[in-house]
């Protein structure tokens, strides 16, 4: 573990403060690490992914003896040292040729990882198109039902989204959307149940990753028609080993900040009940009114009906009615009536 440094001057203090946890996080920095043997294919794959990921990418271009599935200490050290939270490791061995491992960290600790085998690779240079500017965000497209059902593919989607587009942004310049990364899963070889097939990676279908450039054409409406042009890189990936996240660490990583009061009023977080926007864009609300108590209804005021200060209690006791105290009062008129009758 690195020693905890106390800043000695204002500049290093600012630098340390910039690394402290924030409510809205900075974009993740990705470190591209070469393993003990990388090979030509994986080397160029990493180079191109890094070109897409710039400027939030760091290259470790020397050979590194790193085996993430066995020992993650050096990854944790690098993550701490470089303030990075995703690694892409390239390693080619006889047993697992052209391996590409995506490792995600949380709080300087390893969260989860997935090893991919590069089956086919076509470089960006093979396509004669303009390449995306550094810092431009890609649009992501995932196509398969497995991205919602199969745990391996759910993890892969989460990792790829974090790798390319994990940053929360408030606004975007729409004309600057100039490239697309499309991830499609090949049709299933057999029947692949959502839960099973977790152990045997061999039966998992290939994943096609394609890079496209966009061309926006006029459509006569506000929304343009989009045409895609292959731009590269295009990769065919095999799913190999993986390590799911530790449930407790995952829970800690998924903790969200408390919503601000104004955000709750805006309708974020909790669903706003009985409010809807109609076709005209007006906000319409539905109000529920409790049943009205007609007994308390104020009718016409007259002097004779006015309750005076002294009388109030007596009236209440009479209206309460039927008490034993009232007997003496009641009997008198009754007697009178009888007398009259006689």
């Amino acid at each position: 573990m690195l020693r905890v440094v106390k800043p000695k001057n204002a500049r290093s203090k600012r630098a340390l403060e910039a690394r402290e946890p924030k409510e809205v996080e900075d974009p993740r920095t990705v470190i591209f690490v070469r393993g003990s043997h990388t090979g030509e294919v994986v080397g160029s794959v990493m180079k191109e992914l890094m070109a897409l990921k710039r400027p939030h990418a760091i290259s470790f271009s020397k050979k590194n003896l790193v085996r993430p599935f066995e020992d993650a200490t050096s990854l944790e050290f690098w993550a701490h040292k470089n303030d990075a939270s995703i690694f892409v490791l390239g390693q080619s061995t006889k047993k697992r040729p052209n391996g590409l491992t995506i490792v995600r960290m949380f709080d300087g600790k390893l969260l989860d990882m997935c090893e991919l085998g590069v089956d086919q690779f076509v470089s960006m240079d093979a396509f004669k198109t303009s390449k995306p500017q550094p810092g431009h965000k890609p649009m992501l497209h995932f196509a398969s039902e497995l991205f919602d059902t199969h745990p391996r593919f759910i993890q892969l989607k989460s990792l790829l989204m974090d790798l390319f587009n994990g940053e929360v942004i408030e606004s975007i310049y729409l004309a600057g959307l100039e490239h697309v990364i499309s991830v499609t899963v090949a049709p299933l070889p057999g029947q692949l149940a959502s839960a099973s097939g977790d152990q045997d990676s061999g039966s998992l279908p290939i994943v096609h990753v394609r890079g496209y450039g966009t061309k926006l054409l006029a459509s006569g409406q506000r929304i343009p028609r989009v045409e895609l042009v292959p731009m590269g890189p295009s990769l065919d990936l095999l799913l190999r080993r993986h390590q799911p996240a530790d449930p407790e660490l995952w829970k800690a990583a998924m903790r969200r900040p408390k919503l601000k009061k104004q955000d709750v009023e805006k309708g974020l977080g909790k669903k706003r009940k009985n409010l809807e926007v109609d076709e005209m864009g007006d906000l319409r609300g539905r109000v529920h009114v409790a049943k009205q108590d007609l007994g308390k209804l104020q009718t016409r005021k007259m002097k004779g009906l006015k309750v005076r200060a002294g009388e109030e209690e007596e009236e209440e006791s009479e209206s309460g009615g039927g008490g034993e105290n009232d007997e003496s009062n009641d009997t008198r008129p009754m007697k009178r009536k009888k007398e009259k009758g006689v």
């Binding site: 924030k22 939270s85 949380f106 709080d107 800690a252 998924m254 903790r255 969200r256």
Partner: peptide
């Protein structure tokens, strides 16, 4: 929902 890189401040 994507996991955070660092815990909440």
């Amino acid at each position: 929902q994507l996991p955070r890189a660092k815990p909440l401040p």
